[in-house]
Design a binder for these strands. Sequence first.
DNA 1: ACCTGAACACCGTTCAAGT
DNA 2: ACCTGAACACCGTTCAAGT
Lengths: 236, 236
Amino acid sequence: LQKRLPSDDARLRKRKPGPRPRFTREALARRALAILDEHGSETLTMRMLADELGMGTMALYRYFPSKDALIDAAVDLAATEVELPAHAGESGSWKEQLADLARELFAAGLRHPVLARERFSRPLQSPGALQITDRAVGLLLDAGLSNEDAVAAFKALLIHTLGAVWFATSESRTAVRRGAAERHGSLSADELPAKAAVADEFTAALGGAQAFTLGLDALLDGIELRARHARRHGRR
Amino acid sequence: LQKRLPSDDARLRKRKPGPRPRFTREALARRALAILDEHGSETLTMRMLADELGMGTMALYRYFPSKDALIDAAVDLAATEVELPAHAGESGSWKEQLADLARELFAAGLRHPVLARERFSRPLQSPGALQITDRAVGLLLDAGLSNEDAVAAFKALLIHTLGAVWFATSESRTAVRRGAAERHGSLSADELPAKAAVADEFTAALGGAQAFTLGLDALLDGIELRARHARRHGRR
DNA sequence: ACCTGAACACCGTTCAAGT
DNA sequence: ACCTGAACACCGTTCAAGT
């Protein structure tokens, strides 16, 4: 948390003459993160970021080789906010600990939507992210899953948590969007009986966290079932 | 499937004099879909699409008001490829039918990655997509879930399926990417014991469908548990 | 060593003009 | 009615130049 990005140290150490940098990689990444969370990666512009920071556009390239690298750094920054749960055994069953971890990540995702949006498209290999992976896989192995199943279950949990963030944040932004209501209206209850029956619950759940909570419970219950089954049949 | 987009009919009906359109909305959307699936929405360019079709760039705007509308149409096209399972009762339990539906959507997603990538950011309200929703929600109500839970469970299943597509397709493209291997190597088994233990399974699972399969089974098992519980306690 | 401004090769889209 | 080309207001990034 608040950890300095790796290259800052190197940068500060090897300066000798001349003016020193007026910014740090972290300061730039943090400002970019705020913009990314609020407006998305398409809206973030090198020119606008530079303006906000009161520097020339090209000065940014002294800290990051490309816009892509800048986004990477911003995403890593968001990932370091996820707190790892206490050590195994200290705070409940593997199930409770995994649920805590997922909830922690979900909350971080709501604070930083860019985390979910970009994690799907770029490998997230920051130390913080790797520690989350390690902790989660460890808990799944504790539960009694095989190596193969532990990896798959970890991915399923990650997919669910980040996907839920994506849904929650994109629905709350685009809920009242172009034409959606009209098209809804034009489709009768005859054609879509089930959807008509739950229409109220559908709109009530827009942007909510119910899908995350229910899905997480269901996933963990299902994983537990599988772990019990594996243990009983001596798969491990 | 292969259904003509709504405005084509209107367009064809009301022509009277002059040259007739040389293309259809569907033809353009289909070509765009191919590019979107292969290269993503950032690479798709109005200029390049027009070139491939042998038309001037601005002619595209006679069929779609914007690039965004074009992408919408392409995504809808992909969504119509998802076959609905046979009617309730005809082909097994609600669980099997939901699993079929999810697998169907997953397969369509692998064929058309853009489906997952864009569904998260834009509401998908095409008739085909709405029918999928209706069928899935209906099955969940059959299972005995409350309206509220059925909506949440549907979303969880959708999140899992589309998220798994995203993971599978983005991992297979970026698996061997910049620096990931090195950073992996620099982190010792001391710091990340669990991840080191399953390293082989991790790389073996890259881009694979195991996470989807395991997650789907677990989710459905968990949902069944909840439905049984709800029924036993007269929640419905 | 650090920062800048002009310039390059792109975008999506507007608009006036061609047939 | 359908299509086009030039032009506008943007991008990310290169490069030569300033201090």
